[in-house]
């Protein structure tokens, strides 16, 4: 499969969505809504559930199974309210010592008038900063398309897992081709150049593991379970230090020997 074929596959409407993962992998899911400040943003889906009998907080981008559902959840493009809702749920998880599991599948944060007016940038940066210090294990699974800051905002995690046909990139290949070559039609070439497949991201050290899609729910279940088992052995201090170091150092091979005048 070419990189762009993977992009198309990652976007397929028939791929499982967060609501499917929630019903297949968790029990007793109780949805929580709203950011507690302004409104409910349906493009972020979240709540509390049991995972192998243990309470966890689940948060993720919501895509629909058809056009109607997609319109309702704004095609998984959150506004600031969505990220603030995610932070609210994460703060709760920290308080009640629940691990956080996030599912990433978004074309990006919504580029809209209201979103800007109510602080899209501020909501995303706050979430990045907040997650980097969250005192509970965080696991992210990239299930479809992970695009730009809108994806990153809920994926600062101890473990990042990717489905084998998921993609994760700085922006869409269409946007990349449009910005760098002024030709969005060169999207397939862009996808190749961008190195956005699960294998690429594993090589970059951005993701920690690839999940095969032959038996998708069972494999995702096992991957999360294994990661969680490992993370639960760590103290909070260890967890935070390792998370910080991961983001601080994964690109250090490019940074050379630092000398200070």
């Amino acid at each position: 499969m070419t990189a762009f074929e993977k992009v198309l596959k990652a976007r397929e409407i028939t791929r499982p969505k967060i609501t499917d993962y929630v019903s297949e992998l968790f029990t007793d899911f109780f949805e929580l809504r709203g950011d507690g400040l302004k409104k409910e943003d349906k493009s972020i889906y979240g709540g509390i559930a049991l995972f192998h009998g243990e309470p966890v907080t689940v948060i993720g981008h919501r895509k629909g199974h058809d056009a109607g559902e997609n319109i309702e959840c704004n095609f998984a493009m959150p506004g600031p309210e969505g990220y603030r809702k995610a932070m609210r749920l994460m703060a709760q998880a920290e308080k009640f010592k629940r691990p956080v599991i996030t599912f990433v599948d978004t074309p990006g944060a919504y580029p809209g008038l209201e979103a800007e007016m109510f602080g899209q940038s501020q909501a995303i940066s706050a979430s990045l900063a907040f997650m980097s210090r969250l005192k509970t294990p965080v696991i992210t699974v990239v299930t479809g398309e992970g695009s730009s800051g809108g994806a990153l905002a809920i994926s600062v995690a101890d473990r990042i897992l990717m489905l084998e046909n998921a993609v994760y990139s700085v922006l869409s290949p269409e946007g990349f081709a449009s910005i760098l070559w002024h030709e969005s039609a060169r999207k397939a070439e862009a996808a190749e150049v961008m190195k956005l497949t699960a294998e690429d991201l594993l090589n970059f050290g951005v993701t920690d593991g690839i999940i095969r899609e032959d038996d998708i729910f069972q494999n995702v279940d096992k991957a999360i379970y294994d990661a969680l088992t490992e993370l639960k052995k760590k103290s909070t201090d260890e967890l935070l230090k390792e998370r910080f170091d991961k983001y601080r150092k994964f690109d250090e091979r490019f940074c050379g020997a630092v000398s200070r005048a």
């Binding site: 995303i124 940066s125 990045l128 900063a129 907040f130 980097s132 210090r133 730009s148 800051g149 990153l152 600062v156 994760y168 990139s169 700085v170 922006l171 990349f176 910005i179 760098l180 961008m194 190195k195 956005l196 690429d200 991201l201 970059f204 951005v206 998370r243 910080f244 983001y247 601080r248 994964f250 690109d251 490019f254």
Partner: peptide, 26 residues
């Protein structure tokens, strides 16, 4: 914004700088 020519590693700078700044503020 992010430097497109550096792909996903440019995106990750958002997380890196935010984590470092947050620790400094803390």
């Amino acid at each position: 914004g992010a430097r497109m020519q550096e792909g996903i590693l440019a995106l990750m700078q958002m997380a890196k700088t935010s984590a470092v700044i947050e620790r400094f503020k803390e």
